[in-house]
Simulated assay, not measured.
Amino acid sequence: MNYVLLALLFALLIGIIAGLRAMTPLAVLAWGAMLGWINLADAPHGAWSSWLGNTIAVVVLSILAVGELITDQLPKTPSRKVPAQFGARLVIGALAGAVIGTPFGHIFSAIGAGMIGAVLGTMGGAQVRGALAAKFGKDLPAALIEDAVAIIGGFVVVYLAGASLT
């Protein structure tokens, strides 16, 4: 198996999730580490990311992710494309990319892939959500579909990343 390509693929995909919902990638990585889906403790480049599997990290990141899902529905929530929101997605995409790339032994290339994924998820997610909202005549159904894609997609990415290492 080519671990470079796998690391880049999974980092890109987790970055896309960051573009959809900024806090979801770290939360699903934490859950995946805690459930044993992905081994962050015995990674080739050290265990710098093993803290994500800690119960406290799982709880805190899950609360932040749920909080984001709630605040996303508020009418005064700014667009994901404003600099602060966009920047947060890039940083989290990079961090999540590094975390998911660590077990493959490719942290730094995964950082770039995570950032590219965050750009794709941010811009593409906004476009798709806008189109769905126009089709439904309101934003809530589109937002809920995007929430489901981010959460389910994030868990699938983390599970498959871990499974590809065994």
Rank of each mutant, 00 (worst) to 15 (best):
W51E: 04
A18Q: 08
F108T: 03
L13H: 03
I70L: 12
V4E: 02
G87A: 05
G53A: 10
G121V: 05
V128Q: 00
R80F: 00
T77M: 10
N54K: 09
I14L: 05
L165E: 01
I56L: 06
S50D: 12
A11N: 00
L95A: 11
G32Q: 08
M1L: 08
L5Q: 10
P25A: 10
A118R: 06
S62A: 12
A7G: 08
Q127D: 07
A134E: 15
L74E: 09
K81V: 12
A126M: 12
A11V: 00
P83K: 08
V59K: 03
L5F: 07
A11F: 01
A33S: 15
I17A: 07
K138E: 15
V66T: 14
T55R: 08
Y159R: 13
T55C: 01
A161F: 04
I63G: 11
E146V: 08
P141W: 14
E146P: 03
A94E: 05
W31R: 02
N54T: 02
V66L: 14
I116C: 01
L140E: 15
G153A: 12
L9Q: 02
P141Y: 15
Q73K: 15
G114L: 05
G32F: 08
H106Y: 10
K138F: 11
A18M: 09
A143V: 15
G53V: 05
L132D: 11
V91N: 00
P75H: 12
G130I: 02
V158W: 05
W31T: 13
V149G: 02
T166M: 07
V119Y: 07
L120I: 13
